[in-house]
Design a binder for these strands. Structure first.
Lengths: 344, 344
DNA sequence: ATATATAATGCAACCGCTTGCATTAATCAA
DNA sequence: TTGATTAATGCAAGCGGTTGCATTATATAT
């Protein structure tokens, strides 16, 4: 077979057309299984394509169809268990529908989020799945995309002012339940390690905490509500503050999984026993939670579920060319483990 | 400003050209900061581009430049700590060089790997970073890419028959050191939970284990070398076998992090104390290793480092248009924790 | 002032595929 | 048999940039 190839050795539909002495358009239609091409021709074309090692050039295809079949995904980080589970589900779901996925992380930086959004725009993604950075307050950086009607779906860290579907958990309720759980097992002095102020998910968690205290007739002790960036360092410092107070907490609700693990580990150095002297529960559950000793109670946030659903929502928006402003609230699970064992 | 926009509301360089009454090529060159365009024109063009909200269409650009500035990344899974760290580093490094990243996971399936490779080919990625699936034995699915001289770089799960740079750790040595460590602290009956047979990294680890035993003058007891898929279930089953034998192991080298954590957790139910009756060390280290009780000794595989290096290697191949067949062996660290505490 | 090098811009083909419309071939009803 | 349908294929204009080469404007040398 005489192969006339382009510069980079790529076989194009033109090559196939020449080989068969038919029009390029016929080849294109044959390969796309158009119903206006005879079966005989299709067979021939497919055979030759196969033989010549033809592979569709998605770039060219995207350009002429004005559709890339690429979904852009923007997350704060890709190496937290929650997000990597979500990403995994997103990728899986997207692939099922014939979409590729471009992933970018913002590292919790607003500036990077803005930049990444531009790149996604330039890449002409067919739709966008976003989980906002902690720093993100305003959303004007979405304007360009919104104006162009690029479908957007958000999960977990969402902003309801951006049009498109949202998939979340009820953070208020999650925190409320966690706090209530501590109250129920007898904790009287419950503290909360909160995330950065102004970040909605963490604000909601702090609110849930406060209301649960109130409804359980428990006081909020001074300094028992500490807000920080949830880094290992900050978590340890918060613990230090609590442990050197005259009235130590006997229960802690930690606003994310990572800090929860750190706290639980760090508590040991104060000669305190969990759960006898102190109960801990984290909002967010990682594999480690059940493996460590004591195993760490948690609210499990359904990462895969959220990833899967947000992808489906986005794909629906893409297909239907409509904006779906629905909000899906995924259920969380309260996982009671040894760190919050019922006191006698 | 009169905006004449295309169907999807996209501003093109043609729009800018018309607006300014100059040629499209001039606009293109101006935006690309070509040195054959006067500063005055550049300023004007950039101003108008800004004002009209122009954003480069990467799809069109890619097509005409025959370069996508996209790196394809193929990994077995994106939600293991090792790979998510690597991915994070890859993404970061790629972005620094102006590349986007398309990520796909094979879920350890050869079939999916083959398929994903085709998609990457169609997407015309400028280069490929790959970590092979466990199932992958043959590499003929890389032929098409190799023939087209698409740069490929592999890390961790590599195959030296595919041209391109490789970034690995010395798995043999890692396993050897881990085993030797157990021997040194006095373990006499050391077992090894190996990964699937035929997967190089795990074979090498098994070899390192065996050689370390030999050189430490220790016997390999029957059934003490068990190969499995390293799932939670398999790990527990292996432990079951060992624990119901007359001669239980007093040391275990587990061939990945996840199974190591599971084993350590499961051991408790046999009423065995770590490290007094049994020492455990895992090849691969997760955050959990140091948080659990007892903290789990491990060989730390440098995920970020590998991700960073493999990306740099790939970018160099892309830039230089040459194949770099170098092999970088990244150092691992032996992290001695409480699960392998020196016996009296 | 004239030839000549240099800088700035324009023209048009091209990247590989898609698609509306035109054309030709095959099929059917009258 | 002939005009009307229907089926199959071809033509050519995009999609939105990029780039080699031609052209024009400007600067330098003689």
């Amino acid at each position: 077979m005489a192969k006339k190839e382009g510069a980079k050795g790529e076989i194009t539909i033109n090559d196939i057309a020449k080989e068969l002495n038919i029009a390029t358009s016929t080849v294109s239609r044959a390969l796309n299984d158009s119903n206006k091409i005879s079966d005989a021709t299709k067979k021939k074309v497919q055979a030759v394509a196969q033989e010549m090692g033809y592979e569709l050039n998605l770039v060219a295809s995207s350009l002429s169809k004005n559709k890339t079949n690429i979904i852009g995904v923007i997350v704060p980080s890709i190496n937290s268990q929650f997000f990597s589970k979500a990403l995994s589900a997103i990728q899986k779901e997207a692939k099922l529908a014939g979409y590729n996925v471009i992933i970018s992380q913002t590292n919790e930086s607003f500036e990077q989020e803005v930049e990444v959004l531009k790149v996604m725009n330039s890449a002409r993604v067919d739709g966008l799945i976003v989980s906002l950075s902690i720093e993100t307050k305003s959303i004007s950086h979405f304007n360009a995309l919104v104006k162009k009607k690029v479908p957007i779906a958000m999960f977990d860290r969402v902003n309801y002012d951006v049009p498109g579907a949202k998939v979340v958990v009820d953070n208020y309720e999650a925190s409320y339940k966690a706090t209530e759980h501590l109250a129920k097992i007898g904790c009287k002095r419950i503290a909360h390690l909160a995330g950065p102020l102004g970040c909605k998910v963490f604000d909601e968690r702090a609110d849930g905490f406060k209301d649960a205290l109130k409804n359980s007739n428990l006081d909020l002790y001074p300094q028992f509500l500490l807000s920080c960036d949830l880094s290992d360092k900050d978590a340890r410092e918060a613990l230090q503050i609590w442990m050197t107070q005259s009235e130590r907490p006997d229960g802690i609700v930690v606003s994310n999984a990572s800090a929860g693990l750190v706290l639980t580990g760090a508590v040991k150095s104060y000669g305190i026993s969990i759960p006898d002297n102190l109960s801990i529960i984290s909002l967010g559950n990682e594999r480690c939670n059940e493996l460590m000793v004591p195993s760490l109670s948690a609210i499990d946030m359904p990462g895969e579920e959220m990833g899967k659903t947000v992808t489906k929502k986005l794909l629906k928006q893409i297909d239907s060319k409509t904006i779906d402003d629905s909000i899906v609230v995924k259920p969380f699970r309260l996982l009671i483990r040894n760190s919050t064992f019922k006191k006698a």
